[in-house]
Amino acid sequence: MQFNIDLNRLQKSYRIIQAEIHPDKFVSASQIEKNQSLIKSTEVNDAYQTLKNPIKRARYLIKINLNSEENNSTLPPSFLMQQMEWEEHLESILEQKSELEKFRLLIDGEYKKNLSSLERVCDKDKNWDGALGILNEIQFIDKLNDKIIQQINLIETK
């Protein structure tokens, strides 16, 4: 399996499978079939989410290739510095919507940059330890992005 996948095809396969096994197809069926349909349909949703989301997909790929769930790699000091800088910046603009929007674009750029390195390291270099390092960074970036969005939502609902 590769990191770079055909998302269109993934969606089509997902829909074909759900059309077959979704609990809606078993409303008048026996209890065992209902149970099985619930279990399978849940599994398929989980698989689809894992493959659709690039971060989850990378985590899964690394897990099966490194054959372990352990994550001992530490972030390089330069990224830690960057992390602190970003956190401080967010703190200073919490109430400013336009600044938050601007910051979000910047973080989104970082996210995309990391995503393409992840693709290179996974599909070309097959360097799973390297991939793990990038994964840790991109997870932080993703969480930061969520925080920014949450803050924007908060301002809007006030």
Partner: peptide, 21 residues
């Protein structure tokens, strides 16, 4: 009967997925 046929039901569900794909 429900308990005894649980795994059979699961296998059948897998087969139908396979067929559909």
């Amino acid at each position: 009967l429900n308990e005894n046929s649980q795994s059979f039901a699961a296998k059948r569900m897998d087969r139908s997925i396979h067929k559909a794909l």
